[in-house]
Every structure is written in structure tokens, then in C-alpha cells.
Design a protein around this nucleic acid. Structure first.
Lengths: 229, 229
DNA sequence: AATAATTTTTAGACTAATCTAAAACTTATT
DNA sequence: AATAAGTTTTAGATTAGTCTAAAAATTATT
């Protein structure tokens, strides 16, 4: 008589592990490039030694490949997990802005928590409820159920051409400070922008909005994404 | 010259602490009664020794009063925290059922996680979005922003009178098994029920639904709440 | 009131995630 | 190629939450 044991090993992924994977995904150009220890430590506000420990654990679980002193790169599996977290994060951001009256700059912190709730039904139904949005409130593309998403051909305001009409489609810097600056100057998703003048001296840019004209610093111009109309 | 230091001590409450407080609230009749160690251990699926450890910590933080070998009772502060978690849990349940097509028995597990997201704006806006619901999908009252809620005069089917018309308003047992049993027999919130006969032998109850008649066991009759029409 | 049964607490150990400080390795500079 | 500077890893410690096993206290039973 044979006894057959079917053992399910359910690999639970912790919140901390998810945050490491997400950080490595963003730092490594959608998981394509190697990422080094210090960079991870910096974005996660932790110490390099902690990163080394965690990275070994994630390598054991085959979410990434780790070469001592070289850095880490996500595996297929790791990328899938990251994309799924990004999908959840961005869908929740849409929900918060469109249904719960959150502003551009308020969504990020709450979405950081909501993105870790684990329920396929929850996220697929939310997707349907929001009518399958393609972009989040910052203009970033939302991966679909299978992890597919568009990479849009965005251009920073700093690289925009004088005289062309552009539409604002997103930001690089998502800090509260920056988003509030944009809000207070009536720059948001969809705002039409034309470049009037680029000052070579300090790389500031003079732009025309709907009704007003204003000058923005190089720092702002670098962090604002546009698409030609 | 005087130097004034204003020190904010932000007492972060952990997920685990919240779950203990919630369990003690439910076990202790809305926080009014003492709760003993073993009872807490059982509902939280942990060991009595772990409960003792945690309970000491919660006493230090003044969420509850703890008397060695006697048990614990929530403080005002502890009750406030519990009520707030209950509010969040029940609002999310309404959201899941009304907006995301969840059924009675699917909501609980996801709501267990959503209830721990910390954002006043999130929960108040969700409340408004749902148009300030008074009851969750199981018929339990939802505390308002200030923690106030109705205690409804519900009666178990087992205590219902023969010949009277009742409306189903909730359940005691929220296990998946029970909720699925109700679903498959077309008993839900708002279903009209009339008691036809009570069998003294085994305490089973014969009831009339909209179109059909059926007999339910004592166990079912004990766990189904009604309100006279 | 003494003993038995049960409940609760203590003591000591374990895991996950972190830290500091020192050692090992890599890269840049002379 | 040798040294300096910077990065990464190791070793050992810490904290939150949990556990087992034994001790202490309470409650129930004779």
C-alpha cells in the first residue's frame, strides 16, 4: 500500500518583503537592471546591512538573483510580484481621487498601505468598478490583470520644444511638496502647456498655461512630464 | 533665555495590538465586562502565555486595565479604538457588497485587513461615498464618526413567536459555512420570515419564506436575528 | 478544609527585521 | 602598483511577538 502525501507549501510574502521587491523594481528600470545595496537602503530608509540580510532571504525565495558585492536583479517571479503591487497601488489611487475626493498629493501615503491587501477578487472588482482605467492620477500606466501595460512616450518639460503645444501627463517627483506646488499654480493632469522661452543661464523655463504665463525652475521642469498634442 | 522643547510622543498602535483590542471589545460585551486570558487566546488562535505578555503591554499603554489572574477590561481609550476599528470594518463590508459585488460570506476576510488602514480622511470619505449607511451587510450597526451607534432590538429566530411576520436583520455566527447555508436557502438581509411551528423535541423551527416552507435546526434558529414587522 | 482540576503567569527560547561597528571587498586616485 | 575612498558584508545585539514547559494562583470537588 502506498501513501501519497500532497504537501502544499504556501510561501507567504510579508509586507516588508513586498516593499523591498517594489523598491528594487522601481530602482532597476522595471526590474531589468541590477540594483546595488546602498540605493535600496536609501529609498527604504534603512541601513545597508539590513538590505544585505533581506536580499539574501529574497534570493532564497527566488524573487531575485543576488551576487555578493555586485547587486541584485529581480527574477520573472519577482517582477510579477512587483507589477501586481504597482497595479494595486495605482488602482487604489484612481479610486481615492475619483470616488473619495482625494487630491493629487494626498493619495500616495494611503495607497502605500492599500497596495498590500491581498485579494484577487478585491482588486479585479475594483478595476471593473473604476471601468478599467489605463492611467493613475499622476499619469502612470496601470498594469492589467495579466501585468501588461503601456509605456507612454512622455517627455520632461525641460526637454520640450519652444512653440509646441503639450499636455501635462505626469510627474517624476511625487513628493507632497512638489504636488502642492503644482496644485497651487493650477497645473494638473491634462493641463495644456506651451513653452515660451528657455533661459540658458539657469535652465528655467517660461511657460504659458490656459490664461497665465509663469516661469518655472529647472528642478520643476525636470520633474513634470508632457506629451505633445 | 529659555528654550522650549515641545515633544510629541506619537504612540503608534500595531496591527497586533489592534486585533487584541478588538477581540477584547467583542468578548467583553462592548468593552463593558472583564475578559479572561483563555478566551482571548482562543479567539485569536494563540496561547494564553502570549496573551499575558500582550495584555501587560496594552495595560502599559493604558488601553486596558489588567489585574493578575483576574482578567482585563478596556479603558475609555481602548473602547474608542475598538469602536473605530468596528466602524472601519463594517463600512468596508458595505463597500465590498454594494460596490464590488462581494457576497455575504466573502466580505469578512478582506474587511479584516482593510479595517487596519489608518486614515481619517479615507474612512470619512468612504462613509460619505456610501451615503452614511447605518448597518453593515450582516445587519450590525455602523458607529458614526463620533463612535455613536444604535443597538437594535433584534431577536433570535429561536425566540420568535408563531404567526408573527419578521424580517431577517442579521446573524450571530458569521462563519462562511453558515452564511453559505443561508445563501443557498435564499435567506438574506431583509428576507421576510414567518414561524409556522416549533418542534419541542429537537428545537427545530418550521418557517415560511416568500414562496417556500422549510425546517431549520436549533443551531440555525439560534444564529439568525429577526425584527418584528 | 484538603485535594484535584483548571487557569494564568513566569522563565527561557525562537524568528523576523532591524541596528552598530568592524572586517572584507571594489573602485578611484595618485 | 600602492593607497585612499567608498561600498558591502559579517558578527553580534535588540525589539516585537510568539512559543513550550514549569510554577503559581484560582476555582471546583470531594
Amino acid at each position: 500500500m502506498y501513501i501519497c502525501y500532497l504537501v502544499y507549501i504556501i510561501v507567504m510574502i510579508t509586507l516588508t518583503e513586498e516593499n523591498y521587491i517594489k523598491a528594487i523594481y522601481h530602482l532597476g528600470n522595471y526590474g531589468k537592471d541590477m540594483v546595488n545595496t546602498n540605493a535600496i537602503a536609501e529609498v527604504l530608509n534603512t541601513k545597508a546591512s539590513s538590505v544585505t540580510d533581506m536580499v539574501k532571504k529574497l534570493a532564497d525565495k527566488e524573487y531575485l538573483n543576488y551576487k555578493k558585492y555586485q547587486g541584485v536583479k529581480l527574477t520573472k517571479n519577482g517582477i510579477n510580484i512587483a507589477v501586481n503591487i504597482v497595479r494595486k497601488h495605482r488602482l487604489w489611487e484612481v479610486f481615492l481621487v475619483e470616488k473619495l475626493n482625494f487630491t493629487w498629493d494626498e493619495v500616495h501615503e494611503v495607497a502605500e498601505h492599500l497596495e498590500h491587501i491581498k485579494s484577487d477578487k478585491l482588486i479585479d472588482e475594483l478595476d471593473a468598478f473604476l471601468e478599467f482605467p489605463m492611467y493613475d492620477p499622476h499619469g502612470d500606466p496601470i498594469p492589467d490583470k495579466n501585468g501588461k501595460f503601456n509605456k507612454i512616450d512622455k517627455i520632461a518639460l525641460l526637454q520640450a520644444e519652444i512653440g509646441t503645444q503639450y499636455k501635462c501627463i505626469g510627474v517624476e517627483d511625487t513628493s507632497t511638496n512638489f504636488l502642492q506646488y503644482l496644485d497651487s499654480n493650477s497645473i494638473g493632469l491634462g493641463t495644456t502647456i506651451e513653452v515660451l522661452h528657455k533661459e540658458p543661464f539657469d535652465n528655467s523655463v517660461k511657460i504659458k498655461l490656459n490664461t497665465t504665463e509663469m516661469v518655472v525652475s529647472q528642478n520643476v521642469a525636470k520633474n513634470l512630464y508632457l506629451k505633445a498634442l
